[in-house]
Simulated assay, not measured.
Amino acid sequence: MVKIPAGTFVINGKLRMLSNVKLEGVGPETILKAGPSFTSNTGPAGGYPILTTAGAENTTLSNFTADQSGDTLDGNVPGRLNEYMIDVRDSLNSLVQGVHTRNPFTYSIAFVGGSKWCVKNSSTQSATNGKYVELDGIHAMNTSNGDIVGNVVDQRKGTDGDDGIAVHAYGDEDAHDIRIANNSVRGGRHGAGIDLAGGSGAIYNIDVTANMVWGSPRGLHDAYYDGTKQIHHIQIVGNNFRDNDIKTTGGAVDFERPVTYVTMMENSACNSGGYRLPVGNGNVSGRNTQSLEC
């Protein structure tokens, strides 16, 4: 175990985890902060992580704040989206717990490839205006067997934020068997609260349960970026969508494209429009409520 005390620790390089290591601060007052030369060198995948697992197994990141200094640095640099602030990449058995991210110029907490991971009791926040695009909060790409549980995601303190929580299949790799539960999520102006973004790879076996999704352009949305492989076997149960921008059909949940085996039950939407689920094999919708006021 590596313990870090309270204080601000300026980083101009990139921290890379080794296998079987636990990195633990004392709480939000342990701050790992990008320094003035942070963008002068890159991580192993050519981006700008505060910390990356880069293939390490059995790692834990806990109880600290990561500050990418996107409010003061110019983060619009080559490779900006090659790696992410907290970058769990191609790793097995990874835990992110009690990690708080601030001032991003990339995705805040990302799981890329790999399997068997969890992010819980953590928070993300995007607060810049007019500096960046594609600032997702928690992003799971081409990965499997993960849990996103009990986090507070707010990508709309400024105008630059994108999706609050995104599950993304990029290229021909799949994203599957992921649980998104008991989170408080506000998606940014450019995205949604929760986004399922398919492509040439499929997205399936996603459990979206008991989340509060609020103040977003829309609550849950599907998208296809580099292909049309189908999204299927999705469970959306017991979520609360409130005060989202779109007040018509699809403001709470919007599947615009063909999907199959989607169960959408017992969700509530207030001041957020309604639900759209196309007819498709195995699709079930029932006991979802909608009201004009919260």
Rank of each mutant, 00 (worst) to 15 (best):
N239V: 02
I31W: 11
I178C: 09
G198E: 05
T249P: 01
T8D: 11
G113Q: 01
R242E: 13
L292G: 14
I194S: 03
G25N: 05
I203S: 08
V21P: 01
N271M: 04
R156L: 02
G43H: 06
Q97R: 07
D136A: 13
T42C: 02
L95K: 08
G188A: 08
E256D: 09
S122V: 05
G198T: 09
T263D: 08
V26C: 09
N267G: 01
G7I: 01
G251F: 10
S69H: 02
A202Q: 14
M85I: 01
F64N: 13
G130H: 07
L51P: 07
R16I: 13
T39P: 08
L92N: 07
Y107D: 15
A166D: 06
S69I: 03
S37Q: 14
N145P: 00
S200D: 12
T8K: 15
T101L: 06
G219D: 02
C294V: 00
G25E: 06
I180T: 09
T159C: 01
L15A: 12
S200R: 14
Q235K: 14
G25Y: 02
N82C: 04
I180D: 00
S200G: 14
T128C: 08
R189N: 10
D226H: 07
N76Q: 11
T209Y: 00
R102V: 12
V99M: 03
F9E: 07
V279I: 11
M264W: 10
T8M: 05
R218A: 00
Y224H: 15
R16H: 09
A197S: 15
G130C: 03
G199R: 12
I234V: 14
L196N: 08
D162F: 10
N183P: 11
T52M: 00
Q230M: 13
V208T: 10
G193N: 06
P217N: 04
Y204T: 13
T42F: 04
N142E: 11
G199K: 12
S285A: 05
K22F: 03
N244G: 03
V237Y: 09
N12Y: 12
S144L: 07
R242W: 07
N182Q: 13
A197L: 05
G137M: 05
S69G: 04
T128N: 06
S184M: 13
A56E: 05
P28Y: 01
D74M: 01
N82I: 05
N63Q: 15
S126N: 10
V2L: 11
A202F: 00
L73R: 12
S126A: 15
F64Y: 05
G150K: 02
I180V: 15
L81I: 05
G227I: 01
L61H: 08
I203P: 05
I178E: 03
A202E: 14
Y170I: 12
Y48S: 06
G150T: 00
N267L: 02
N205A: 14
M264T: 04
L92I: 00
G113K: 02
P217V: 13
D243Q: 14
P44I: 09
P258G: 01
I138N: 09
L95Q: 13
G199P: 13
R179F: 03
W117V: 00
C270Y: 01
M265H: 04
T39K: 01
T124L: 10
P278K: 01
S108P: 02
Y84H: 15
